[in-house]
Each structure stands twice: as C-alpha cells, then as structure tokens.
Design a protein around this nucleic acid. Structure first.
Lengths: 224, 224
DNA sequence: CGACTTCTGTCACACTGTGACACGAAGATG
DNA sequence: CATCTTCGTGTCACAGTGTGACAGAAGTCG
C-alpha cells in the first residue's frame, strides 16, 4: 500500500475523530463543516472529498455492517431458512465488533452516545438502514429464488432482523456503557426476537393471496 | 372557523399539490423551493412558514397516521396484549384512508409514486417513522406499566408493527395501483406478520437477562 | 530529474433555512 | 364607518451545506 493511500486513510480517520469529539462537545447542529475542517487543518472543500456530506460522518459505520452481513449471507448454505441466515449475519457483525481495535471501539461508543443525545441523528441512521434493508431484501429474495420486487416475505425477514439490531442498539440502560455491555444487550435482543417467532415461519413459499379481505386470525400450519 | 384559517388551509394544500406535481414531473432534487413558491404565487419565505422544510412536504402524511394510531392505542382495553392493540391501530389507519376524500386519496397515491421513484425519500420517510416509533413505544410501555427507557419488548412490538406497515406500503406489484389495491396489500402484509408470530409472545413480562452469552436456540415456553 | 497522476486550496456559485423589519389585510370595538 | 390590534406576507440580509472549475502542490514512476 502506497504512501498516498495511507495518508488518505489517516486523514479520513482524523476528520472522523475530530468531528465526533466536536459533535459530543458542542452538539451536532452547532458544529460547522468549517470547524471540523479547521480542527484537522484542511479546507472545507477537502472535507467534502472525504465525506460526501456532514451527515455521512454519522453513517460511516453502516457501510462496514452492511458488508459483513452481506458476506455472511453469501456464505450460508443455500437451503437454510432466510431468517436463520440473517441472524447469523447479525451475530457475525457483533463478533466482528468484539474483535475491533480499541480505536474503532471508541469511535463506536462515541457514535452511540451521539445518537442518544441527538434523536435527529437516529433518523439519519435509520434512513441509511432502509437502503441497506432494500439491498439485503434483494439478496434474500435471490437466495429464495423469487422476484425481489413482489416478495413481501423476504423484505419482512430483513426488516425484522434489522429491527432487532436497531432496538438492541438504541435502548440505553446506562449512560456510558462499555462495548461489552452494548454487545451483550444487542445479543439479548436478537435472542428475544428469535423466541417470539413461530418456528419455520420463514420457510413457506410465496403466500397465495387470501380471498377474505381481513380474516382476524385464521391459523394455518406453516407446512413448507 | 374564520376566513383566515380557511385561507391558510387552502394555501397549505395548494403548496402541497403544486409540490407533489412538480416533484413527479421533474424530480425531487431538481425542484427548488422557489419553483414551488412560484407555482402558488407566494414568496419562498412564506413557503417556510407553512412547511418547516422542503422534506416535510413528503412527511405530512405521517402526522395524521401517528395521530390515528396513538388514539386507537388509547382507546383499547388496558389488559389487551400490546401487539394486538398496535395491529388495531394499523387497521384503524387503513380504515381511515378508505374513507378519505378523493383529493386526499390522490395525494396519497402521488406520494406513493414519488417514494417509488426516489429511494432517497423513502429514507426520509423511514427517519420520520423512527420518531413515531419512539413515541409509540413509550405509549406501549406506559400501557404495560414498565419503564420505557429500559424495555426492549415494547419497542419491538412497535418496530414490528411499523415494519409490517412499511413493507406493505413499499413493495409495488403494479406501477400505478389505485387506493384499494394499496390498502389491500397493506392488509395482507399485516395478516402475514400476525401469522408469523408465536401466539402470546407479547404477553411475557420483563425478560430476565439470560446468563449464557449466546445460546443459539434455547427454546423456552412463553409462560406469562 | 522530468513526465504523469492524484490530491488540495481558492474562487465562485446555487440552494435551504432563519432572523428582522415594514406593510397590508383580517378581526374586534367604538 | 373609523380605529386599533393582530396576524400573515414580502423584502432584505445572512449562515451553512454542497458542487463545479481551475491552478498549484504533492506523490508516483520512468
């Protein structure tokens, strides 16, 4: 790896760290791009060459997460129930975070505190998660061999898995938990969601449109 | 109701309609506030007195939806399982839309097409949904008599219900469906989600933290 | 070193969103 | 109808984000 790329990565992390600290210190909205750029001694114009927007600073984590889940999804056996594969993806992400460097762990925790303090940023994060959800739903649909556009089941599999991740991440029972505590809480939430679903719910094929408009509770066996 | 308020409401709807048409015609990003203001013959400054931002044009629908679900939640019997109450809220929303005026139905369908065309806007919508989710989760937690901050179950109840609504809304199997088709699809998705959950999953009280860090599948009965 | 590529800073600009102020129309009162 | 208050609106000015164009500096390779 050349000097250029190393320097680039270094600058990128410097921007990120400076921004996180400034955000935590004086709030997200009150911090301008000019300040962030000044803190790492670059021009505001250069900032936008490293991060497409001020918002994307808060979203850098998603890229990594989506990549890990996507890779896990690809590595799972084809016949596996889709929700099981997704859960493996979530756990792979937690495992990766457990092995992350202290610097990355610190950034993660700072980001988490930032999201706790600024509900508006949670919105950004969730919005980014929606894109991820679409791509993952397409991947799951491909695995199941159905058309992604018209398959609600694939989308639901991903949506519920992501909801588990999000709820586990968001709900704070402490002010400044360490990484282990956060991961444990996320793991608990995943287990909770696993337990609330009917075994085999994700096995059924394309559900036929029911004739009745709104049957309140017509219980059918989930025979694949 | 005075002349002032009627005029205000009229202007508000005029802005909304003009904006939706412009967005569908030439894209969201390519449409400026100045254009929208020009179309209804007001100054750009006045636009921001009716809508706090350009984004909020796309989110006007959420306020109504959240209100209906919140009201339904309040009207349900206290002992009812929380997810059942949430589903009643969702169905109340669908029922309300079925009875909406042709104008409102038209706006809803335009909005839907807009979201199909612009994935970025889905992010906005989902971000707004996250705020709703927080408030509803607090309401659900209050119903269950637990602390909202530390209760993942309440949050999951809402998250899953909202996921059902979102997935039912998003997945298009037609280019320009009418209102009935969209509502039917949303109803189907709600039914689908109801069927994939274990009966009584939302009855259990605060789950005790499991000692084992990551038991892959320790099935416990959901005894309340 | 010299040629080439890539990154960076400067300048200029469009767009969103907000504060301050003055004008005019809606509403209440004589 | 005259008046006074209130509220909506337009104009002006401004901060902040984000982008395009160009010139110069730094890294890369022969």
């Amino acid at each position: 790896m050349g000097l250029r790329e190393r320097k680039k990565e270094k600058t990128r992390l410097a921007i990120l760290d400076a921004a996180l600290d400034l955000f935590l210190e004086q709030g997200y909205d009150s911090t301008t791009v000019e300040q962030i750029a000044g803190a790492v001694d670059i021009s505001p114009r250069t900032f936008f060459r490293y991060f497409t927007s001020k918002d994307s600073l808060v979203l850098w984590f998603h890229d990594h997460g989506e990549q890990i889940i996507t890779e896990t999804l690809r590595s799972r056996p084809p016949g596996e129930p889709p929700f099981t594969s997704m859960v493996h993806g979530l756990r792979a992400l937690l495992g990766d975070m457990q092995e992350s460097t202290p610097q990355d762990a610190g950034r993660f925790l700072k980001l988490r505190r930032l999201l706790d303090d600024h509900p508006h940023l949670v919105g950004l994060s969730v919005a980014r998660g929606a894109e991820t959800e679409r791509r993952l739903a397409a991947a799951v649909a491909a695995r199941r061999g159905v058309d992604p556009a018209d398959d609600r089941m694939s989308h639901l599999v991903v949506a519920i898995a992501m909801a588990a991740l999000r709820v586990g991440f968001e709900c704070p029972h402490k002010d400044q938990p360490d990484l282990g505590e956060v991961l444990e809480q996320m793991e608990e939430t995943i287990t909770l969601v696993e337990g609330m679903l009917r075994p085999g719910w994700d096995l059924q094929d394309a559900p036929e449109p029911p004739a009745a408009p709104a049957p309140p509770a017509s219980r059918e066996g989930s025979d694949a």
